[in-house]
Amino acid sequence: MRKEVPMVLTVLAGLFVIVAKYLHAVDQLGWFTVGNRWFQIVYAMFFLLGVVSLTIVHGKNVQRRRSKWVYSLILLICMYGYGILTLEQTVDGPEANWIYNNIIVPSDSTVFALLAFFITSAAYRAFRIRTREATVLMITSVILMMGTAPIGDTIIPGWGTLAHWLMDVPNSSAMRGIQIGAYLGGFAVALRILFGLERAHLGGAS
């Protein structure tokens, strides 16, 4: 029963979405929108789980004075502190806004900026002419990198046009193929769930 009940619920929910989306008479009742709202409410309840998980993991770190426990303490103070603050003055309150603009925005941008450094070292590590395919990948990446920056056209006029052509023609064709395949694959997974063949999300390795 542990797996059967959730499986039956999943199949019923899947059929509900199909009926509510495709059949005009049911669509007019607006069940799809109501179903979506239920989903949002259930989803919101799960946030409590996240808070509980963080509290347990980092609470244990602090309690047992594990290495770097101070960071766990800071995390707990920030999480509960910001939560209480925004409950009191909403997310657009003056202090909440100040924290957002002066702490969250710069920290987020900083971590995003790491990407520039990591891409640089990854290019150094990964782009090797090991095989014919790897050579094509490397040459294409250099053409695009230089062509999408003004330096490409400055060195060789028309470099940017070549980069645009690569993006517009070979890239778009390949992307379409991959996207069609990926959407179909995704749909096949949905059908497997609907037919009760895919059960991994209910737990276990099989």
Binding site: I119, A123, Y124, M145, T148, I151, G152
Partner: peptide
């Protein structure tokens, strides 16, 4: 972006 592209190309 231009100089970064040149630098990465040289690295490769």
């Amino acid at each position: 972006a231009s100089l970064a592209a040149m630098y990465v190309t040289l690295l490769i």
